[in-house]
Structures are given as structure tokens and as C-alpha cells.
């Protein structure tokens, strides 16, 4: 302890030391304990979702549930097949990638390599801010600006989601491009390449892990998106024939029917959530694998 405490007698000296040790150790344990909360949260989420959906899986049958094309919860007897929703989620996500990724990558290249600094100072924070626009707001925009063009359809949802994932893809792909060593670019120039050729045939391939990670994160956002999709996709629970058909996603299925569902119907909706969760976990796994590879 500090010299000022030298006059205090030995007893209080040791007790303050003990007290201090207890406090240090105790607080350390407390901090460690709070760190366990995230583990507990994941465990609780899994337990409750899987527990709530087990009756549905056993009663309907895993195979029938996943591959059934008919979702008629109010029929007697009801049928629960979520294939139309799985297909709907995958199609809309694929559509969003087709719409969002090329534009997003071009924009990322622009920000990383072609943007005049003065413009960059305005555009970059702007794109970052737009990443925070709530999905309902996107939904309102989609209802009034995209639905009149394409109707309530897979196409409308894909376009809207494609725009929604833009800020994510732009930001991540830009930082992946910036992480490529400058010597790659200089080397390409030295070999006689033009600026854009160097960027697209040297820098972009060199940044591919990071760019791929950006796309995977975009996929994760698109497949988990709920409110904006509900407002523009039409939500018909049947297999779509064309991109102009209305579709229902896994997320939409839960929100639309959870309000009045009971018994097996309710359990089937929770099971829908489990299927969605499994999809997301797979996507996250591939994302972290890509990020690890990019480093």
C-alpha cells in the first residue's frame, strides 16, 4: 500500500488486503459470469424453439413438413408443408443477390478506388447512415414505389431486398478491397494495366474472400428479413410459378399466423422458426469460415 498507510496497525493492514483480494476476485468472477449470459441466451433460444417445435416434427413428420407443398392449417384435417415457404425464402434471397450484389460491388469499387476524396467525405457517411433505415420504412417505400411496377410479387420483394442489402455489401466489400496491399495495384500498373483493369482483374480477385463474406452477410440479412418482405411479397402460401407470382417466406409465415395459431398450427409455426434458424446458422458458419480465410 502507499506510504501514507504505514502508520496503520498490522491488523487493519491485512484486513484491507484481504478485502481487496476478495473484491478483485469477486468482481472478476462477476464479470466472467455476465460473459456467460450470451452462452445461456443461445442455449435458451435453442431449447425453447426446439422444445416448442418437437410435437410438430413428430406429429407431421420431418420429411412431410419440409417437403410438403400444401400449407392449409385451417383444413380438416390440416396439412402443414413448408416447402413453398422454403422455396419462397430461397428465391427471394437469390433475387436480392442478383439485384444487390453487382450494383453493390460496383459501388464498393467506386468508393474504394475511384471516388474523389471530396465526394467520398459525403457519400461514405451517407451510405453508412442508410444502413440504419428500419425495415418497415423500406416496406412502406416498397408498397408505394415498387409494388405498382411489379405487383405484390417475388420480383418486387427481390428488388426491395436487393436495395436493403446494398449498404451492408458496399461497406464490407469496400473494406475488403482496401485491405488488399497497395503493391498489388502498383504491380498491375507496372505491367501495363490500366487503372480499372488493375482494380477488376487484380484487386477484386485478391479481395475475394472478404467480398464473398460481404455477400454471405447480405444473404443472411435477406433471408432473415421479415417486415419489408411481408409488405410487398403477396404472401400466398403456394409454390410460385414465375417471378411475378406472390410468394410467402419463412419469416412472413410466422408473423402472419402466429397471432391466432393454436396447438399443432402454433407448433408448426415454431418449427418454421427452427428451420429458419438452421438456415441462418449454416450461413453464419460459412461467413465466419470466409472471414477467417480472408485474414
Amino acid at each position: 500500500m502507499s506510504p501514507a498507510h504505514e502508520s496503520t496497525d498490522v491488523l487493519t493492514e491485512t484486513s484491507t488486503w484481504t478485502w481487496r483480494l476478495v473484491k478483485e476476485r469477486g468482481m472478476g468472477l462477476l464479470f466472467a459470469f455476465t460473459a456467460l449470459v450470451s452462452i445461456a441466451a443461445v442455449a435458451l433460444i435453442c431449447v425453447f424453439l426446439v422444445g416448442g417445435s418437437l410435437p410438430a416434427f413428430s406429429e407431421i413428420g420431418l420429411f412431410a413438413f419440409l417437403t410438403g407443398t400444401d400449407w392449409s392449417p385451417s383444413d380438416v384435417p390440416p396439412t402443414f408443408g413448408i416447402l413453398p415457404m422454403i422455396v419462397g425464402s430461397l428465391y427471394i434471397t437469390a433475387g436480392a443477390i442478383v439485384v444487390g450484389v453487382p450494383v453493390g460491388l460496383l459501388a464498393a469499387v467506386f468508393l474504394a478506388r475511384s471516388c474523389p476524396p471530396r465526394l467520398y467525405r459525403i457519400v461514405k457517411p451517407g451510405v453508412d447512415l442508410l444502413a440504419g433505415i428500419p425495415s418497415v420504412v423500406y416496406g412502406f417505400f416498397g408498397m408505394a414505389a415498387i409494388v405498382p411496377l411489379f405487383d405484390n410479387s417475388m420480383l418486387a420483394a427481390s428488388v426491395l431486398l436487393g436495395i436493403m442489402i446494398l449498404p451492408t455489401i458496399v461497406a464490407l466489400a469496400e473494406s475488403a478491397l482496401r485491405a488488399v496491399p497497395e503493391s498489388y495495384y502498383e504491380g498491375a500498373l507496372a505491367l501495363g494495366s490500366g487503372h480499372y483493369r488493375a482494380v477488376y482483374s487484380v484487386l477484386l480477385p485478391a479481395a475475394r474472400s472478404g467480398v464473398l463474406a460481404a455477400i454471405v452477410l447480405g444473404v443472411g440479412r435477406a433471408i432473415g428479413e421479415t417486415m419489408a418482405v411481408i409488405m410487398v411479397a403477396g404472401n400466398q402460401a403456394r409454390m410460385p410459378d414465375s417471378i411475378f407470382d406472390g410468394v410467402r417466406t419463412l419469416t412472413a409465415n410466422i408473423v402472419l399466423e402466429m397471432g391466432y395459431a393454436a396447438d399443432l398450427h402454433r407448433q408448426a409455426l415454431i418449427a418454421t422458426g427452427v428451420v429458419l434458424l438452421v438456415f441462418i446458422l449454416l450461413i453464419n458458419l460459412s461467413f465466419s469460415a470466409l472471414v477467417r480465410k480472408a485474414r
Partner: peptide, 20 residues
């Protein structure tokens, strides 16, 4: 686990909140 939590879509949180 915290990365996993960060990736879970909000509707799944909604379902969990409803159940728990």
C-alpha cells in the same frame, strides 16, 4: 455465441420472446 446471437434474425427473437 455472441456472433451467433448477432446473426439471428429478429423474428426468431420474437418467437423466443413469445415462448419464454
Amino acid at each position: 455465441m455472441s456472433d451467433t446471437l448477432a446473426g439471428i434474425p429478429s423474428i426468431v427473437y420474437g418467437l423466443f420472446g413469445l415462448l419464454f
